[in-house]
């Protein structure tokens, strides 16, 4: 693996935002095995963690953190007790705090959507 562009800042940011030790993950893959939405993701949850460990900024382009709905299935399964949803949230926050909203309110057709869906979506996908 080419580590010449490794960005330690990314790793540190994710650790700070999530409060998790990213290197305690030993890549067992249990999070991905239990995740109910892997078929919708371009990277498996454990691959996202690996990229953060390696300081690979391309992880910020992945759709995986935006597909994750914090259902916590991985959180109860992780043998290391890692809060994987918090790591996903940290990756989302890195983009959101640069004003890179995932959902554009002006484009959104909110008709027929209940408030519980809108509030939760906008809290997770806009800064």
């Amino acid at each position: 693996m080419d580590l010449t562009n490794s960005d330690r800042e990314l790793t540190a940011d994710v650790e700070e935002l999530s409060g998790e030790n990213i290197f305690s993950c030993y890549q067992c893959g249990k999070c991905s095995a239990g995740c109910p939405f892997t078929e919708e993701m371009d990277l498996l949850p454990n691959q996202v963690i690996r990229k953060v460990q390696m300081g690979d900024r391309t992880v910020l382009d992945s759709n995986t953190p935006w597909t994750c709905a914090s259902c916590l299935s991985c959180e109860v399964d992780c043998p290391k007790g890692n809060d994987v949803p918090a790591i996903m949230e940290a990756i989302r926050e890195i983009s959101l705090r640069k004003n890179l909203d995932r959902v554009d309110l002006n484009e959104l057709d909110a008709k027929g959507l209940p408030e519980i869906a809108l509030v939760s979506n906008l809290r997770k996908k806009t800064g």
Binding site: P36, T67, A69, S70, L108, L113, A117, L118, S120, N121
Partner: peptide, 18 residues
């Protein structure tokens, strides 16, 4: 198993599959 939750707002198809 998660129903897809708030993704119903911006990824309706994914939620439909689930």
């Amino acid at each position: 198993e998660c129903c897809g939750s708030y993704n119903t707002v911006d990824n309706e198809e994914m939620v439909l599959r689930k």
